[in-house]
Design a protein around this nucleic acid. Structure first.
Lengths: 249, 249
DNA sequence: TCATGCATCTCGGGA
DNA sequence: TCCCGAGGTGCATGA
């Protein structure tokens, strides 16, 4: 029982066998093939014949990669159900329910395929996120300004969710919109929307965009709307504690 | 000269050789290995030891896949430069400039690796995009309402870019914001922002959100702001003409 | 190059 | 389940 089993130039029956084995054993299957791809669901696409790398994961994820770009040319997300079908050509058919989506890969020639019984108990530990910017601000509110007091994190308001809600030394309500990277127009629209929602209930509301930098357009809209900017870089911990940290609650 | 070359349980020197061959021949290289991954750049991450599928594309794209999820756990985008390094363990090092980002995969055990000389001249033909919704509206403006005349597509205004700008039968300026799927708060904020920008120059501006449906929150903000909604599904052509269409300009 | 916005976005969290 | 917003978003487009 090795971690890897492979076949070169498999027959259709061999393809089916290795596919079924991967499925039943919860292994990853990678197929190197010339194929056509048909997709229909949220959108619809066709991809003519060419050589691609096909990855089937045990969680139902299905990727078709061309030899360029980071993104798969076609895919199916986790939870999809895949089967092997012998049509005119051997085919992999993946179906997702809700929304209904179907991916069909017709394999004209399979050059190689690999079953990989992957064992992996590790999770990514990532640092430098917006969540960590928020933590820093709660620990050192003076990074925003003297007298600032953060009160709520991810606070739902009338039309959206505010990153950080607090008060300044003069009792004004302060809305912070955080961005881990250069803030764009999009971020200013968010902040403006939150400030306007809060101003319906309170007389004095300030909005502050907190980010490492601003695009030119973002700065223009920010100034026009009387909103503010504080420069802040996302922190990079020495040792990330995992994407989702449930630190010190 | 076959399309596929593979090695099972390769030695470090064999790993290097197949890697170099893939690089020089512009082939895709897929490695099945137990590895650790270190990333630093826009953010920073660590991934402990586990079995993963590593994909190197000739355009510099670099993917590290765990056995779950559609997304690679770590990656490098096209244009990155990869090299093999013999450290304590054989390692793949990929560097991107602008922004500077480094990905290091330390391979503790390589179970299998495949060089794939992929030939592919096909591009995805996709239909059901927002761009196609716009085409439909320009061809049949009455889908919005009787007397509507679309004038501009992707029109830059003060603080953003309007999907479609036109006039109604009463001479009002009309801004359309298109969404190919259920429209969320985000879309309403965009539309509101565009309408407000145009109202600074013109007295009568209407804003219409065009989408298959609306989230509850989007509907509430839309109504509060006096904006409008027209239900429209993105069209699905019988034969998609390729992602980017430069049709009939 | 930068800025802007779409995407079959994906993914996670909360109600 | 839906809704909302982050993301090392990726990616194309236009200035």
């Amino acid at each position: 029982m090795h971690k890897v089993e492979y076949l070169g130039e498999p027959t259709p029956e061999e393809i089916r066998e290795l596919f079924e084995r991967a499925l039943s054993r919860g292994a990853v299957l990678v197929v190197f093939a010339r194929c056509k791809v048909h997709y229909e669901g949220r959108a619809k696409s066709e991809l003519g014949s060419g050589d691609r790398v096909i990855v089937l994961k045990p969680d139902g994820s299905f990727l078709v990669h061309q030899s360029k770009k980071r993104e798969p040319v076609n895919w199916q997300p986790p939870g999809s159900v895949v089967r092997f079908e012998m049509r005119e050509l051997p085919a992999l058919v993946s179906v997702r329910r809700k929304p209904r989506e179907t991916l069909v890969v017709e394999m004209e020639e399979v050059y190689h395929m690999v079953l990989f019984q992957a064992e992996d108990y590790e999770e990514l530990a990532l640092t430098g996120s917006e969540a960590e910017m928020a933590e820093v601000i709660f620990k050192k509110p003076e990074l925003i300004e003297p007298g600032f007091r953060p009160l709520h994190r991810e606070k739902p308001i009338k039309h959206g969710i505010v990153d950080i809600l607090g008060v300044d030394k003069n009792g004004n309500i302060v809305v912070l919109e955080l961005k881990r990277r250069r803030a764009e127009l999009h971020a200013v629209r968010q902040l403006k929307s939150y400030v306007e929602a809060l101003r319906e209930e309170h007389p004095n509301v300030r909005g502050i965009l907190v980010a490492p930098s601003l695009t030119s357009g973002a700065r223009k809209l920010l100034e026009k709307e009387g909103l503010e900017f504080r420069k802040l870089e996302p922190p990079k911990r020495e040792r990330g504690t995992g994407g989702r940290q449930r630190t010190l609650l």
